[in-house]
Design a protein around this nucleic acid. Structure first.
Lengths: 176, 176
DNA sequence: TATTGATATGTTATAAAATAACAATTAACA
DNA sequence: TGTTAATTGTTATTTTATAACATATCAATA
């Protein structure tokens, strides 16, 4: 499975991205520990309780770059003695989403760890329908046509859900 | 691990009305009959069966510009003797969505009639969190930065879910 | 350091949304 | 008219999510 870390939203960045891209080494253990530490720090600074269940659910979400359902997470928690009933998983997920450490993917009824440290970004997701990999990006709706149309219509945007479905490069090859 | 840095933004087709469909005043009786006739014609031309259940579900969706859940639709069908079990509603909705006569709103687990006659448009929705009205507009990702950049990155877009949440003009006044 | 008010977790029960599987019926058309 | 495909009827179950209330823990301070 191939994962993409994609930044979306600014047309200026687009032309840059059109150029060939190289590989970058990705130490996933560091990727996890960094994100957990980041959440830990934010919680300390904000007086939030980063409890064992919440920490563990974030780690589970971080364990790979795909979305996980609440019951899939609950199964893991149950095996580890951290909780056995749906509200345990849903509450932890609610906390993580509320504070920007995770996002809900509506299309999949599932959750994914947030890949950005900036707090109030408007995420967009690229979902591969074949391998299930999910790439997070930033939607910047204020600059989009939908944003302009909404403004012209007098609609006040509070939040935007942008989930793009398709095939990642690897899966296109696999299908051909 | 491969990292892409990509920019996405949605741009509406210029020839389309810059007004979303749903908030503005209009002759709603005509709105309904036009859409049903349109679906009828498409089905005749394409050899699809526009059965009583399917027709009725489309009418129900058209009865106002808000999204309706499958079970809400099923209740109406049941009262009218057109079906009593969930699969009846889900199948009709599946048909309508498959042929572009309706759309699913992921955020609401609900469905809305399609307001456009053009078949393969990429819809975007403005959802009022207060009154539940939903306006449809067009995201046109094929001609947008999303399409070009996803293409450059090798990600093949098949479908885009764009659901914007906020307050419609009327409800902004009501809150103020 | 004991009190207390807020926050978090445990647990039971149920609601809400969706689909699998198979039988019966109806439509399309050779 | 007979045959096949499409649609609908029905039962049962799965998946996703939350309400409600009891218990436990935390965090601030008296």
């Amino acid at each position: 499975m191939l994962f993409y870390n994609i930044s979306i939203g600014f047309y200026a960045v687009a032309s840059k991205s059109m150029q060939p891209l190289g590989f970058e080494k990705h130490d996933h253990a560091t990727c996890i520990s960094d994100a957990v530490e980041r959440a830990d720090a934010v919680c300390r600074d904000s007086g939030l309780q980063f409890t064992p269940v919440r920490r563990r659910v974030l780690e589970i979400l971080l364990s790979d770059h795909r979305a996980r359902g609440a019951y899939e997470i609950l199964d893991i928690l149950r095996n580890e003695g951290l909780g056995s009933q749906p509200p345990v998983a849903y509450r932890a997920l609610e906390f993580l989403v509320a504070h920007g450490f995770a996002h809900r993917i509506e299309k999949l009824n599932a959750f994914i760890a947030c890949g950005y440290s900036e707090h109030n970004h408007m995420p967009a997701f690229l979902i591969c329908r074949n391998c299930g990999s999910v790439a997070e990006t930033d939607a910047a709706p204020n600059r989009s046509a939908v944003g302009r149309i909404a403004k012209a219509a007098g609609f006040h945007i509070e939040r935007a859900i942008v989930e793009v479905e398709g095939l990642c490069p690897e899966c296109q090859e696999a299908e051909a």
